[in-house]
């Protein structure tokens, strides 16, 4: 138990000391949020709703990024620098190691969600009911699972540079095409129909529904679960192939 706590604690410290994490997961989303709700005039019919909507978009953007990049790149780093091998020789069990990483990551996500929500409340005075704040926070926390699975896929790559490049591209494509930067409705028809099937759109849409007083769509939940299953199987399959050498 002591080991587990210690492992969680240091997993969290490591993420917080990572400058890329602080920049991409906290500074960028808050900056974007400020720009797209204050500087750029978006002509939104319902200003308060747009401000809440975009706050969700940016929180989803942040958590999606740290799920894929922080986790994935760190896995590659640990493997390429021999740390993963060293850990295998210590008595630390794989279960504890994996669980601590997941818990560490979740704590980090809760922190990001809280900070960005507070930023929204301070910058634009976004006000939601307590239930809406909690529900949307929980949705974002749980909805990050398929993206963590993408993170483990990226984590299977051999070089840190490749992993960083690939994850960046996937991140940006998913964010834009999934309507996190600007609503899907203002995009061309074809983009809209593709976007609706992307995990990022379904992740975001759950939160957008919640702040409008609805529950996330079943469709959103099912699609996210399907993606989670596919990415996990894929990751397992590739790992087995890599180990077969």
């Amino acid at each position: 138990m002591k080991t587990f706590k210690m492992q969680c604690k240091y997993e969290i410290i490591r993420v917080l000391r990572n400058r890329y994490f602080v920049f991409w997961s906290l500074v960028m989303p808050i900056l974007f949020y400020y720009i797209f709700t204050n500087v750029v005039n978006t002509n939104a019919p319902d200003k308060a709703e747009w401000q809440a909507h975009y706050l969700m978009s940016m929180t989803v953007f942040s958590v999606m990024g740290s799920s894929m990049m922080t986790l994935g790149i760190r896995m590659v780093q640990e493997r390429s620098q021999g740390w993963a091998t060293f850990i295998r020789i210590t008595p630390l069990s794989d279960t504890v190691y994996f669980a601590a990483q997941m818990i560490g990551q979740s704590v980090i996500h809760m922190l990001s969600i809280t900070i960005i929500f507070i930023a929204g409340a301070l910058i634009n005075g976004v006000s939601l009911t307590a239930l809406e704040w909690i529900m949307s926070g929980l949705w974002i926390l749980l909805g990050s699972l398929p993206f963590l699975a993408i993170g483990t896929l990226i984590g299977l790559m051999k070089k840190v540079e490749t992993a960083a490049g690939v994850s960046n591209v996937i991140y940006m494509v998913l964010a834009i095409a999934g309507g996190l930067w600007m609503p899907l409705e203002i995009m061309p028809k074809i983009m809209q129909s593709i976007g609706k099937w992307l995990p990022s759109y379904n992740f975001g849409n759950g939160a957008w529904e919640i702040i409008r007083g609805n529950m996330p769509d079943w469709r959103n939940i099912l699609i996210l679960i399907a993606y989670l299953a596919v990415f996990m199987l894929l990751s397992k399959y590739i790992r087995r192939k890599q180990e077969a050498v």
Partner: peptide, 29 residues
């Protein structure tokens, strides 16, 4: 595993942590 210690050819470090922290973490195993 609890009775063996090892130093591999490849130098392994855990980025993001200070030496004392790494030693504390590994000792806790």
């Amino acid at each position: 595993r609890e009775k063996i210690g090892t130093m591999l050819q490849e130098v392994s470090v855990m980025p993001g942590l200070k030496v004392r922290e790494i030693l504390e973490l590994i000792s806790s195993y």
